[in-house]
Amino acid sequence: MKQSADVINNIVSVLQESLPTDKDFIALHEPSFQGNEWNYVKDCLDTGWVSSVGKYVDRFEEMLQEYTGVKRAVAVVNGTAALHICLKLVGVERNDEVLLPALTFIATANAISYCEAVPHFVDSCYETLGLDPIKLGDYLQDIAEVKDGACYNKQTGRRIKAVLPMHTFGHPVDLDTLVEVCDRFNLELIEDAAESLGSFYKGRHTGNWGRVSALSFNGNKITTTGGGGAILTNDDSLGQLAKHLTTTAKVPHKWEFVHDHIGYNYRMPNLNAALGCAQLEMLHQFVQEKRALASVYQKAFSPIDEVSFFIEPKFATSNYWLNVIRVSTEWSFLRDEILQTTNDLGLMTRPVWRLLCDLPIYTSAPKMELTVARDLEKTIINIPSSSYLGAAYAKA
């Protein structure tokens, strides 16, 4: 019978053989600056346009619109701010419930709390690692009712206003099925596409199914603005309102200070947008390199029965933002030892997030049975995924 040490050694061997040997430490995901970053940022410094006004913000938004195919993109300070405004744009109010996966980054739930709404946690599926729309539909059939054009939780009496799926590690959820569930129960769909820039569902970029969607450009994302995010929408009026709310809701005037909503100082500085423009110019290359790395990992891990490399859903072309291996349930007790061993060797790995419903701040929130999410929590390990790691493979 295979011993624990054998399983761990096999995983380490695959990583060491797949990754560069000339580095003492390989990060989980680090930014790559190979293009015009220095030139564009220097232009901001030379001209003095470093803050909330400047040509790069408009250019960055236009580039996002062209790449993703949405009608309107609004650049903001981070992905959490983007999510917050998305929720407000679709009318999420105090005491509303918003459905989201229990297995997601904390920002997804926090943005709901900013609206004084209630996170309602649902299960994930093995095919996408994201929200399971089939289970969600069955669950809502039991606990929800639609009356007067709105969906209500029969158990709490609260309105269920929206569904907020997250495309986990860049892999799109089953959007067609989720749209059908939203239509059936009169729910707004907001895509948390923070991790999925460069990912396509049935040939169309993520962010086009939700009435509004959110992107992130944190330092560890596939493209970065240092810190930043964006709101995407195909609704021109919502796009205009998003821009207005995120720029302190100031009514345009040469000198008067008139604000007609409670606005937010969420606008992205020109300096960050300049960095983002250069990064978007490289996005196609980054995706190619990351997909090439994923292909190498897939082949290299295939002989190891105790772990499996996660492959994009059949309906998707994913950016493979963070690569995933799953330890089999039988060997899941080794997860922490695998993490310890790889990190001690300078190979940065990490577990998936703790289920949000188990955090003290959200233990009282409503939730469905979370069988798959709990299994994924115990078995997922993220492995090094920086785009440069796949550069040589992409050229081969």
Rank of each mutant, 00 (worst) to 15 (best):
N265T: 15
T47L: 00
S124T: 15
T156W: 02
Q340F: 01
F333Q: 12
K254G: 07
C125A: 02
E97W: 04
Q65G: 00
E289A: 12
K243M: 08
A111M: 00
D46P: 01
P101Y: 09
D336V: 05
A278T: 09
T349A: 11
H284I: 04
M368Y: 13
L103T: 04
L322T: 06
L19C: 02
I134M: 05
F310I: 06
F121I: 03
N343R: 14
I106A: 03
H84C: 03
F105T: 15
K135L: 08
E116F: 12
P360V: 00
D176G: 10
F169P: 04
A230F: 01
T206D: 04
I134H: 13
S32R: 14
V41N: 05
W49R: 15
V324T: 09
L103I: 01
V324Q: 03
Q155I: 13
P165E: 08
D183Q: 12
S364E: 15
P252D: 12
A144W: 08
Q141R: 13
G157E: 04
L164E: 02
I383Q: 09
N78R: 07
N265Y: 15
W209F: 13
K154G: 08
S52I: 03
F60S: 12
V118P: 12
G48W: 07
P313A: 00
D6W: 05
L45W: 11
H29Y: 11
N319F: 08
T317S: 12
P303D: 05
D235Y: 01
V173A: 04
L280C: 09
T329V: 11
Y56E: 07
N323E: 09
I26L: 08
C151V: 07
V296M: 13
V76P: 03
A292C: 11
N95E: 15
Y67T: 12
D236W: 01
Q141F: 11
S328R: 09
F309K: 08
G210R: 00
L64F: 05
V179H: 04
A396D: 14
F310V: 09
A294V: 07
L322D: 09
H120E: 05
